[in-house]
Amino acid sequence: MTMGQATIKPDTLIHHSTHGEEGFSFTHLLEHVKDSREIELPGTHLELPRFDPIHIGSLTIDLSPTKHVVFLLLAAIVLITIAILTARRYKKSLVPTGFTNLMEILVLFIRDEVALPSMGHTGVKYVPFLLTTFFFILIMNLAGLVPYGATATGNIAVTAGLATIAFFMIQLSAIRAQGLKHYLAHLTGGVHWALWPIMIPIEILGLFTKPFALCMRLFANMTGGHIVILSLIGLIFLFKSFIVAPISVLFALAIYMLELFVAFLQAYVFTMLTSLFMGLGMQVEHSTETHESHS
């Protein structure tokens, strides 16, 4: 999976460990949004353990935990706690109160405004998947806005992992809805068999572009906001003057508010598009029939 400038490296962190403290440079800003081997804590930092990388063929996989892995798992734990506590509240009473109300608004929004319109009635069984996608991404996005936090979704590997699952879910739901035969028939695009050598690669490429777009969109949005905030704060150090500080801080605050919104928006967009792509794959039945009648 080599896309554009993207390269697969077993350890993307090696060359960042050699940076000095002297002077200010915008490249230092990137250090913050990048993954690292240590977790910053108030006054100190925690070194994460390292495992030996595993070699599978030519690929070297390093499974040792990084900052983003820690925040990934932290988000998972937070989500499990919140979701299970919320679900437990329903056992006491069917009437939601307080925090349960907020959760219910989001859950019902995903069910009624995202899953059902794009997938119809069959979409009900994919609602738990979409809910997990939405809340997991949301919590990871918000984790970056907390002091000492990090945005795991600002790492392209994480969004690529999420997009891979979305890719499998899109294909799986399509196959389940229309059967393997129709699914494969759709890959031919319904054109004359002589054109298949051209059509099939295009269709297959089409399958990958959707989740690729999901991956890039989430990554870019979550990284972008952080870089803007850091740049604004960085201006103070660049000009070495505290006259800039009030303006910088004010702008940074505004961007922070925007990021808060973007955290929700991008979680929603990722979920909505996944649901939409699933729905598209499930509805192809009719168009496949017309394709067949043409050929």
């Binding site: 400038q5 697969i8 077993p10 993307t12 499990i80």
Partner: peptide, 26 residues
């Protein structure tokens, strides 16, 4: 744009586990 496959695997595993646990219990 460097992709750390280890992190991708971590994400996938965490997400799949999360889907299973949350679907069942929440």
């Amino acid at each position: 744009f460097e992709i750390n496959p280890g992190l991708m695997i971590w994400t996938s595993i965490t997400f799949v586990a999360l889907v299973i646990v949350l679907t069942k219990f929440a």
